[in-house]
Design a binder for these strands. Structure first.
Lengths: 348, 348
DNA sequence: ATCACAGCTGGGAGCGCTCCCACCGTACCT
DNA sequence: AGGTACGGTGGGAGCGCTCCCAGCTGTGAT
């Protein structure tokens, strides 16, 4: 009865044991070679490596995960509504970066889209069960309970973006304040006198930062910040339209607009066209994100580029560190801010 | 020595055994309840369910996967270059659909981006090792060896799109021919006399189909298909520009263009503007894909919408069938074609 | 020659589950 | 009453690996 295989699939795949037999060594030794332990003689190592090659041995990750109580996987969690709200490229660029950086590891990338509270609960269970080694969280809201849950169960995690200025969890963010500031300085530098801004939802830290950058640039130019020149929206095209109408009715004399996202800039552009204002002739327009939308607008939109793909890569690096360095509890949490860059196009 | 736990993480998570003890039954019985086997008495089932609830038991997928020789995961394979080439929304909409449909299952979604031949090889190894239960392949080229490999190792797989008219592997595709045809019929119906087309790379079946639809519509209108009116490109914006210039120099009298992708239409639009042709006044323009680009063009682009998210969902459904029904080898491979829909906007 | 102590090595135990076989009872037949 | 059948159940074996401990060398110190 011994040796009877029950399952068809996977049949014939060599196991550690078989490699050991062929190399004339014990299981433990093969395991050590596979995992690159230094305590193996060169002689033995060579023998094992040859056996591995001959048999075409590939370790069974599942067995490994079970025995070592690791998962060999990280989860990328994406709150679904966000992918609709934010311009798509952000989302896919992050994935690209994450995927690229993970390719060198042998960690699997698990993608988790969260739509409903039920699914969020399910994820929480899943994570509590330690079925992944770490978590990458994209665009978390300030009131999201997930980061705290992760903290509690000691699951390594990295956020893209901060929830507030005093973020405690490791994160990778881009320099929203600086980017916004440079955008507005650019507008002012081009001689615009009355520069307005369309903000994102101000309960989001990212929107606060971009507004903060606007303020900074206005003040740096020795001007007053006028409340009339600030309209807040929600990162959507429709929101951009509404805010632009508001702004135009309040201050018909405005000649520059900084929108905190390209999509809102697109909405604003439409309203400007409706009202017969030329861009950049009458009104200069700048966006944020440098998404495909910016390039395809007419005229092409000046925008602040964030290194989104690089953010994905950085997140993985930080997460890997977190996973490795969990031991020393005192270590400071790695947090990094990536620079942005103004991309000048015809809209300003 | 018995019962000594070595690993810290996961400590305290109840196991099947503990649930069994608490419910006063055997391991096998608990397993049956968990997996919804019908051969359990109501009495016992209730007792087990209570124990599960009290202990907060969550099955360990890794152990399950090892024991059952399943992986409880499917891989979504995305050839990296494609995600740059194709407009992004396609890619993220597919993911959205796949994620949504998978949420009801307890399969994990593994995302695999393929950039280099080395990574492709790695994936091949990985799949050969049966570490996933099935594979979703996005936009495969005709010469991609992956589908055949999968066939060989009997790994369930579903393609998005076909490689040729005689695709043998299960797939989900949209009605490219029909969509293109309706687009061109629309142009002709609006009174356009000289309708040209910008095609994708003709070694891709999807490009062939869209061209085929163009031909069909032209012929259906009782006209000749003129080679001069066909310019092929590569689904990129730059390609669209080049093709448009070609077309314009060959046939300055053209008054309608069907571009086989929105991105190429965007390129074409730029050239038309350069050359002083108004849209839709002088030239009516239609794209394919109905991506964000289409909505943000000026004027907004009429385009053929494909139900991309639904394609993702359908792919999962088909894959699940494949995984389940692997037993009867004679069953026909499920293949489905989703309808498209013309979305009219101001460009035509 | 003896002892100690390395560096290597083999292999038992165990990770948490599924599979399957043997077994128990009860209901139904002859 | 004995036989048959079958729904329901317990638990051994095993999935392929990692961990760890004991043991086995060979070397250098004594």
């Amino acid at each position: 009865m011994a040796g009877t295989r029950r399952h068809g699939a996977g049949r014939g795949r060599p196991t550690l044991e078989e490699v050991a037999a062929r190399a004339g060594v014990g299981r433990g030794t093969v395991s050590r070679v596979i995992n690159g332990s230094p305590r193996v003689s060169d002689r033995t190592r060579t023998a094992v490596e040859q056996a591995v090659a001959e048999l075409g041995y590939v370790p069974n990750r599942v067995a490994r995960a079970l025995a070592a109580n690791r998962a060999d996987a990280v989860a990328l969690v994406i709150p679904e509504p966000e992918t609709r709200l934010f311009a798509e490229p952000y989302f896919s660029d992050i994935i690209r970066g994450v995927g690229a950086e993970l390719a060198d590891t042998d960690l699997q990338l698990l993608l988790t889209l969260i739509r409903t509270p039920k699914e969020r609960q399910r994820l929480a269970d899943y994570l509590s069960a330690h079925r992944v080694d770490g978590v990458l969280l994209v665009s978390v809201h300030a009131d999201d309970p997930l980061p705290d849950l992760l903290e509690r169960i000691e699951m390594p995690a990295v956020l893209s973006g901060r929830r507030s200025a005093h973020e405690t969890v490791p994160y990778v963010d881009s320099d929203n304040t600086g980017g916004a500031q440079s955008a507005v300085e650019h507008l002012i530098g081009r001689g615009r006198e009355t520069v307005a801004t369309i903000t994102g939802p101000l309960d989001m830290y990212v929107a606060q930062c971009r507004l903060e950058g606007y303020h900074a640039a206005v003040r740096a130019a020795g001007r007053e910040v006028e409340a009339e020149l600030v309209a807040s929206a929600d990162f959507t095209e429709e929101g951009g339209r509404r805010a632009m109408r508001q702004l135009l009715s309040r201050r018909p004399d405005l000649d520059g607009v900084f929108a905190a996202s390209d999509v809102m800039a697109a909405g604003a552009r439409q309203v400007l066209r409706e009202k017969g204002r030329s861009v950049p002739g009458d009104v200069a327009l700048v966006g944020f994100e440098d998404s495909a939308v910016a390039r395809h607008m007419d005229p092409p939109l000046t925008s602040v580029r964030q290194a989104t793909e690089e953010m994905g890569r950085a997140m993985v690096r930080v997460l890997l560190e977190e996973i490795a360095g969990r031991s020393d509890r005192t270590a400071k949490r790695p947090q990094m801010v990536l620079p942005t860059q103004l991309v000048r196009r015809e809209s300003s």
